[in-house]
Design a protein around this nucleic acid. Structure first.
Lengths: 123, 123
DNA sequence: GTAATCAGTAACCTTTAGGTAATCAAGAAA
DNA sequence: TTTCTTGATTACCTAAAGGTTACTGATTAC
């Protein structure tokens, strides 16, 4: 007498992986929010996020451009400027991020029994 | 003339990190779904997820228990059995996972212009 | 007697993510 | 002239995540 249990709707989870790959890094959401908030230039973004290194930022910006979350425009001129801007499309992530935040907030309550004061609202 | 741009609502993002730490691993959502689907024993879960190793499964199950997503009950007996079961609380993640899935699905359309057939629905 | 089952654990190795520091060329400010 | 700023790139290193293989002890099936 065998139990028949299946998990072969595994492929349906690929989109979940896709999403997590895009927002899952240590910095990606931070960078996205920085750009949403109005930071447009490389150094500006870099300075807005403490401890973020140029190398990681450069890499993440490339990925985010590929994923159509931001646009990159080189403005020829004096010291050569590059402009990053959020796409309209990127804003479809906002709802998701808010829900990740809400769940995380409730989870602290569930696991620790209370909310740490640091966590409030934003964005 | 300086632009004033702030990103110091950074601490509000900690709950987002919390959530991603819990569902963000390579296997965690897979394991959770396997248990939701009815797999209850260690080997059962292990077999239901191809390529998942015992070491990783053992570690993830511990984490998930700490996070109150599952319960672990040892049933004394013949070859010693352990039962894992999903908590009611774990189900609060289902909505979130579905949204990660939906966004990922739409994202493929946005980036590649079409949906790959593999991706449908589940859970 | 041998093999397989259960739920793991331990030692070790590889891969990936992320961090550090130096460097690039061109112009602008000191 | 020297230094600073721009947007990066490169080489190198560390830490964490994940994978591989072997093994445990008790029991049951062959």
């Amino acid at each position: 007498m065998k139990k028949k249990v299946h998990t072969e709707c595994l492929s349906a989870l690929l989109p979940v992986r896709d999403t997590l790959d895009i927002i899952g890094g240590k910095w990606r959401i931070l960078i996205l929010i920085s750009i949403w908030e109005g930071n447009r230039h490389f150094r500006e973004i870099e300075r807005s996020i403490p401890k973020l290194s140029t190398k990681v930022l450069a890499k993440e910006l490339k990925d985010m451009e590929l994923n159509k979350l931001i646009t990159r425009t080189v403005v020829n001129g004096f010291p050569v400027r590059t402009e990053y801007a959020p796409t309209e499309y990127s804003k479809t992530l906002q709802k998701l991020i808010r829900e990740l935040q809400n769940w995380g907030l409730k989870h602290r309550q569930e696991v620790f029994g209370k909310v740490t004061e640091i966590h409030r609202r934003c964005c």
